[in-house]
């Protein structure tokens, strides 16, 4: 019961937050803790607000975020830089999928 209540409150809270950010046109990735993917050409990809990587291979990278998993397929993928906030992947990108 209590758990349910808490979740609805959290939901309410989240909805309010969303409405405020929409109204003021604030950046969503900061306010709502959403991930942001920037792709430059087909050789550079930056994901901000990620939580961790779940798989890394030269052909496939899976990145965990709050909003789900991002799977990048490609060739010669290299994690150029990784820190707590963002990850920079370089290589030839074939596809970006969201799960």
């Amino acid at each position: 019961m209590e758990k349910d209540k808490l979740s609805t409150r959290k939901n309410k809270n989240g909805r309010l937050k969303k409405r405020i950010t929409d109204f003021f046109e604030l950046p969503r990735e900061i306010m709502l803790n959403m991930f942001k993917v920037t792709i430059v050409g087909r050789e550079q990809l930056i994901i901000e607000n990620f939580t961790g990587i779940s798989e890394y291979d030269s052909n496939k990278v899976r990145v965990n975020t709050q909003g789900g998993i991002i799977e990048i397929k490609g060739r010669n993928l290299v994690i150029n830089e990784i820190s707590t906030e963002d990850i920079l992947i370089k290589g030839i990108i074939y596809s970006v999928e969201f799960f």
Partner: peptide, 21 residues
């Protein structure tokens, strides 16, 4: 578990770069 290693490093604020399989 290399991914795990990378994750823990990033969580502990150890900057990694040029990770290559």
């Amino acid at each position: 578990f290399i991914e795990r290693f990378i994750n823990i490093c990033t969580h502990r604020n150890i900057l990694l770069w040029d990770i290559r399989r």
